[in-house]
Design a protein around this nucleic acid. Structure first.
Lengths: 224, 224
DNA sequence: GAGGTTAGTGTCACCCTCTGACAGTTGACA
DNA sequence: TGTCAACTGTCAGAGGGTGACACTAACCTC
């Protein structure tokens, strides 16, 4: 019944009844899809189920999402954009690794506001569990992450005034950072604490371990 | 016509006519699949095509491979096992990063011998291109890589006598290493030199850039 | 406000991947 | 040689995804 048109009308000149109906349909599909995925599981939810629950033909579902996968990763798409924006907002004098680190840490804090418009943050976190535990979704997620890495590398290169194809450092730095974030995600999704705070803390812990992990001899004192 | 039974009979007590036919069928399916994938493309090759070319029912294909994907990644599965073995073979006194680095560099050199039994090395490299350029295959590849990372982390932890769940360093080190390898793969697959030698060189170059990439200030002299 | 244009939607038909059930066939082994 | 087990083919079907076409509702102009 109630709409959210007062929140997200930043660039649209006029909502228009047509646009409004479209948005409503898409939101309903996404909300229902996530709801079903998190309760009965991704594999046990068919596109027909989702469409039927929204009183829409299955064909319509595919007009809003390129596939079941796309719907499952829609929330994540939002957060990725959020993080990229956060990096773009970092002051230019910050070294690459520091900029990414601060952007991510800050990103966790401001994530709720971004996601809440379509689903409660708990739903988002639960959806994350589903992704991590569903092979086909995890695969798609990792592929998207690879694309995100490329964008991030371009961003870093631009910050530093470098050519990504000439200097390997941007891609390497992003790969290192993303690799560690992947470990963090996985660790977090294994539980037992599924809160945002836990994710935040794990992120810091793991990033702090990059130095020690690269150290020549792990048996030697780490303080160095 | 000619078989390869003299090459890979290391542990089997007796080949047996039944086992031999099975192996032959599997090899034929795999060879044909790779052949078709690399020539007409993954998406434009159906399971029915492959089965028909080998004079086997489509149902049979699924008895040897869990799916089209599985067949496309079969060669890669062999090389992953190869790399894990190489790491296991590294002397225990080598620090983690060094052990992985040496294992990979050495792995490129000995890869041909491992793969040649089923397909020429060029075919393998070409298949790699297909994987990298086919979204669904790339996704599956990345998911498998994630599993490999976990195995590798366990391996490193064992080498160092650590508990993977207590000490984040094994997973972080492996994540860093794998992240860089991913960049290498991607760079290599973008061309223009698709040789094993090129892959080898790119590997070294990128691994050498981990230190500089983590450096605080890229604008400062890198020599440290 | 009537009428043409445009876009979202439903219906129908189809391909492809993958799975289960069941029967036929063939190698293994006593 | 005959039985058992395993491999295989046929059949039927679910589910994801796509193209074509017609219908309807919103938009826009006169």
């Amino acid at each position: 019944m109630d709409t959210v048109n007062s929140a997200g009308t930043a660039s649209a000149p006029r909502p228009g009844l047509r646009e409004l109906k479209k948005r409503r349909t898409r939101d309903a599909l996404l909300r229902t899809a996530v709801e079903m995925f998190t309760t009965r599981g991704y594999d046990h939810t068919t596109v027909d189920d989702i469409a039927a629950a929204v009183d829409v033909s299955p064909r319509t579902f595919f007009r809003y999402f390129s596939g079941k996968e796309d719907a499952a990763l829609a929330l994540e798409t939002m957060t990725v954009a959020h993080f990229l924006d956060a990096v773009r907002a970092r002051p230019a004098h910050e070294p690459p690794m520091e900029a990414m680190r601060r952007a991510v840490m800050e990103g966790w804090d401001t994530l709720s506001a971004v996601v809440e418009s379509v689903a409660p943050i708990e739903q988002y976190l639960r959806m994350y569990q589903v992704i991590e535990s569903t092979p086909v979704l995890l695969a798609a997620h990792l592929r998207r992450s690879a694309e995100t890495e490329e964008q991030m590398a371009l961003l870093i290169a631009e910050r530093e005034g470098l050519d990504v194809d000439a200097d390997p450092r941007p891609r390497v730095a992003v790969a290192v950072f993303s690799g560690v974030m992947r470990v963090t995600e996985r660790q977090w999704s294994a539980g037992p604490d599924f809160s945002l705070a836990a994710m935040r803390e794990l992120t810091a812990t793991h990033l702090d371990q990059v130095g020690p992990a690269l150290a020549g001899n792990w048996r030697a004192p780490q303080g160095a």
